[in-house]
C-alpha cells in the first residue's frame, strides 16, 4: 500500500465514521489529454484540441455510444488528476508500464511506436549507442517512458527533464542540449516544421519492453473494470471496422498500431 493510499484510507475511515451517502453515476466520460504533444494531441491556433489521440478518443466514444468531454491537463499531474477524479480516462499517448500499473489500470494498447533521438543538424554524434552518445546533455519530457529510457540506458548522459515537449524543443533548437529523446513520430513531426529545421533524427532506438511496455494505452482508475472492458471492446471495434485505419492514414503514412 502506497503512502498516499494509506492517508486516503485513513481520511475515508474518519469520514465514514461521520456519515455515508448514496453513490452517483457520472453522466458522461471525461477524457484527460495533454494538448501539447503533436501530432498525437495538441491545441490548434484557435485553441481547439486536435490530434491522433483526440480523434481516436472521439471514435471510441462513438463506438461506445457514450458522450465524451475533453479535459486538458498538464502531463506532470495527469495520473494524480485521474486518481482525483478530474476525469475518467487518460488518452494522451501514455505508455503502459509496470510503474504506472501500480497506480492505474490500462486498456490494451492503441498504438506503439519506438523512441528516437534528435540532434542539431551540425551534430558530430555518430550513433545512438550509449558509447557513441557519451556524456552529452540529453533532454526529455519528465514522467515519460523516454525519460526513464534515458536514465536507464544512457547513465553517462546529463539528463534534462522538461515539463512539456515544447521546452526541450526550444532548448535543442538553441543548442542548450545536445540531443533529445522522444517518440519517433513526435520528433519527425516537429522536424518537418519550420522550428524543427535546426535538427535531424540521429537514429531510432530499440524499445525495451521493461521500460517502454507494449505501447500506449488508455489509463483508467484501478478497479473500474466495466469502463476498461468498454474501452477494450471499442478499440477492437474501431480496429475492425476501418475507423482506426482512416484516422491513422489522416496523420501517418505508416501503421502506428505496431506489431
Amino acid at each position: 500500500m502506497s503512502f498516499f493510499k494509506r492517508i486516503a484510507l485513513a481520511a475515508a475511515v474518519t469520514v465514514i465514521a461521520v456519515g455515508g451517502a448514496a453513490a452517483q453515476e457520472p453522466a458522461k466520460i471525461r477524457i484527460g489529454t495533454e494538448g501539447a504533444y503533436p501530432p498525437f494531441n495538441f491545441l490548434d491556433a484557435s485553441g481547439e484540441l486536435k490530434g491522433f489521440d483526440v480523434d481516436i478518443a472521439k471514435a471510441l466514444c462513438t463506438a461506445m455510444q457514450a458522450e465524451c468531454e475533453f479535459v486538458v491537463q498538464d502531463w506532470d499531474g495527469m495520473i494524480p488528476a485521474l486518481q482525483a477524479g478530474k476525469f475518467d480516462a487518460i488518452i494522451a499517448s501514455m505508455s503502459i508500464t509496470e510503474e504506472r500499473l501500480k497506480q492505474v489500470d490500462f486498456t490494451s494498447k492503441y498504438y506503439n511506436t519506438p523512441p528516437a533521438i534528435a540532434v542539431p543538424k551540425d551534430s558530430t554524434l555518430a550513433g545512438v549507442t550509449p558509447e557513441e552518445l557519451g556524456s552529452l546533455q540529453l533532454g526529455a519530457q519528465s514522467s515519460t517512458t523516454h525519460s526513464n529510457y534515458a536514465e536507464e540506458k544512457f547513465p553517462d548522459a546529463a539528463l534534462k527533464l522538461y515539463p512539456t515537449a515544447e521546452e526541450y524543443k526550444l532548448d535543442l533548437a538553441s543548442g542548450r542540449i545536445d540531443a533529445a529523446i522522444d517518440d519517433v513520430v513526435v520528433l519527425s513531426e516537429w522536424l518537418a516544421t519550420e522550428e524543427g529545421a535546426c535538427c535531424k533524427i540521429l537514429g531510432t532506438l530499440t524499445p525495451d519492453p521493461a521500460i517502454n511496455g507494449p505501447g500506449a494505452g488508455i489509463a483508467i482508475r484501478q478497479g473500474e473494470t466495466e469502463l476498461k472492458a468498454k474501452f477494450d471492446a471499442a478499440i477492437e471495434a474501431i480496429r475492425a471496422d476501418g475507423t482506426y485505419k482512416t484516422i491513422n492514414d489522416a496523420y501517418f503514412q505508416f501503421d502506428v498500431y505496431g506489431g
Binding site: 486516503a8 475515508a12 469520514v15 455515508g20 451517502a21 452517483q24 494524480p80 486518481q83 477524479g85 478530474k86
Partner: peptide, 16 residues
C-alpha cells in the same frame, strides 16, 4: 489535497 478530498468524497458516495 486533491486526492485526499476525492477519497473523502468517494467514501461518502459523493461525486468528485
Amino acid at each position: 489535497g486533491q486526492m485526499l478530498l476525492q477519497a473523502i468524497l468517494a467514501a461518502l458516495g459523493l461525486p468528485p
